[in-house]
Design a protein around this nucleic acid. Structure first.
Lengths: 361, 361
DNA sequence: ACCACATGTCCACTCTTAGGA
DNA sequence: GTCCTAAGAGTGGACATGTGG
């Protein structure tokens, strides 16, 4: 043990470091790099080397330093480090809207991946994405010296608001509009919607309605495109899609309207919640699913499997999407490429009991 | 305008501040407090006063400084400020488990309130709360000098893991165990479960089953207590509760088991997802809800209103809970009281179609 | 003594330079 | 060349302590 040694130099350095020489107890502060250096009997530079895994430190010295670190419970100050290196190892995450299953899962996947990459995630959530709230959130994040900003936002308003702001750091948006000027990651909504519609056509349906998401949703627009593409490929006509707000309630209301004028044999709902509302309206009024009408959803929320009847839907792997955002970000931070669009093909159709061949009267 | 004045002093000070005197363009760095001071023709101290809203600054001077701030797009460095003040204005948020509606909404309410209070939120999410992952998350947050840690975790394991760690900062847990030693905020699960059960008894039910959440869930335990309390108050016997994992799937499986041995006239499910699984199992097998059996849920997720039949359930205001966490935190950070338990009474029964008086055969 | 400012020290770290063993 | 010490500049602020009116 070299405790004597360290203690001796500690006594010598006390004055040098500005600690009181008299008998008053020093204020209980957390250890800094100099304290560790003193205890280990090395210079603060060597401690820095050990902490930052820089070579040219003898194993024995390294061990002594690590020991001192443990004894003093030393933890490098991220503030000081960020101040001098200009890198915070922090990423700003902005979410808008209410916490639906999809975005929440994406956040989970992302923040987990960020933690594994030793990045810190700073969140700024808002229900309404006004230009004002977006700007204040961005300001707050930039004030933290975030190295990048991730936006998880389904609607165009949020994207417009943030692209109007000069960020100075890379932006990665989880969105499917295909707009240029920033990095984006998404699941291929178009292909998934087309495949889902193809499936209904294959079952024999010829009149397939679509209940879309809100007008400002980019995913909704892509799903409409996919639905139209499938229909026109098969020579079928697309009736004007009905517009929901993604909620079960609006699905229910639209379902009630559909009952007045029944022609379609299948309804492709923009998401599972809307599908649930449709099921409610239909079963409540004696319209049997799938015998009288097929219903198809989108997302595969955990509840979908237990709807009455269990819902045929399109599954997206949201957590993987979140992890993919982090992977993209690591690449970007390594060498800032020009904007890239990562379109992931990871949606799959899950067939359950809400779809069947149309009943021929 | 005093632009000339400022420009003049800027030219003079350039060398003093270490900027290159020759023709080379200075590296494009973000403005600091000295740049602002130079442009405004004041000392950095005055800028600091303006930024921090400290009095003793003439309105004219203040205006000049604010102008310079705008021109240079100056934003105080949180890192530097944190370094000297030892306060980061950052709160660490730990979530465990998958993103259910409840916790996600609580996070939303919390982070929104934090933003309004000008606090930054740093998240660390994990699916599995092992002692190891909890420790690494805590370490990461403490490394950021968070001023407090908020834990949103339903199960005891997460609470055990974090209480085993010496944090050095206040901990606020969203949990209902009533354990001491830290601050906690929760909705009164016991009272809500008792009231829900009371309602079933009032409808005339005498044999009321309970499908509980997992054993390590503290909310689940409280709900079981409330259910038992109501039954014993009314002189009814409580059969051993069945245990779910909160998922629709386990609700479905338990529902199938219940079909084998039908005695109860009502089932109080631990949450809405489990209730959905029960509904699925029952309707699939021709057991009508609520004619043959009543089903009651907990949480009031947005989907519950559109289940078949619409679910009677207990609504919790999760967002308000999150805001309450932040309010508690502000108090704690002002003057660190001893541990407090805030039990909020904000759950309400929402009666829909899944409950009815028992059918007398 | 008060106002309106300026000056200088310190925070905890990284990185650089110079040099010794 | 390797492993380290010693000393100091620089990072962007806050705070205590000036100073002149």
């Amino acid at each position: 043990m070299n405790t004597d040694n360290s203690d001796a130099s500690a006594a010598v350095d006390a004055g040098v470091l500005g600690l009181p020489r008299d008998g008053t107890a020093p204020a209980p502060r957390t250890a800094n790099i100099f304290d560790v250096a003193r205890l280990a009997g090395v210079s603060h530079q060597t401690v820095s080397r050990v902490v930052n895994d820089i070579p040219n430190v003898r194993p024995a010295t390294r061990a002594r330093v690590e020991d001192a670190i443990r004894q003093l419970r030393y933890r490098p100050s991220t503030a000081a480090r960020a101040l001098v290196t200009k890198r915070s190892r922090t990423i700003g995450l902005i979410t808008t809207g209410r916490p639906d299953y999809g975005p929440s899962s994406t956040v989970l996947g992302f923040s987990d991946a960020a933690r594994q990459a030793r990045y810190t995630v700073s969140i700024a959530s808002m229900v309404e994405a006004t230009p004002g709230s977006m700007r204040s959130s961005v300001e707050q994040l930039l004030g933290q010296n975030v190295e990048a900003i991730v936006l998880i936002a389904g609607h165009r308003g949020a994207l417009d608001a943030i692209t109007a702001i000069e960020l100075g750091v890379p932006l990665v948006a989880v969105e499917s509009s295909g707009r240029a000027g920033f990095h984006s990651v998404c699941v291929d909504q178009f292909a998934a919607a087309r495949a889902a519609t193809d499936y209904l056509v294959q079952l024999g349906h010829r009149d397939i309605l679509h209940v879309a998401g809100p007008d400002d949703s980019m995913d909704a627009a892509e799903r409409v495109r996919g639905w139209r593409a499938s229909l026109s490929e098969h020579g079928l006509v697309a009736r004007e899609p009905l517009v929901s707000d993604w909620s079960p309630r609006s699905g229910y209301q639209i379902g009630q309207k559909l009952l007045e004028n029944r022609q379609a044999t299948a309804v492709f709902a923009g998401n599972d919640q809307v599908a649930l509302g449709l099921l409610h309206a239909f079963t409540e009024n004696g319209v049997r699913v799938p015998q009288d009408v097929s219903v198809l959803g989108f997302d595969d929320i955990p509840e979908a499997e237990h709807f009455t009847p269990p819902l045929t839907t399109v599954r997206q792997d949201f957590e993987e999407l979140g992890r993919d955002v982090m992977a993209t970000l690591i690449e970007i931070l390594r060498d800032d490429d020009s904007a890239t669009n990562h379109v992931r093909p990871s949606a799959t159709l899950v067939v359950r009991g809400s779809t069947a061949p149309p009943h021929r009267p």
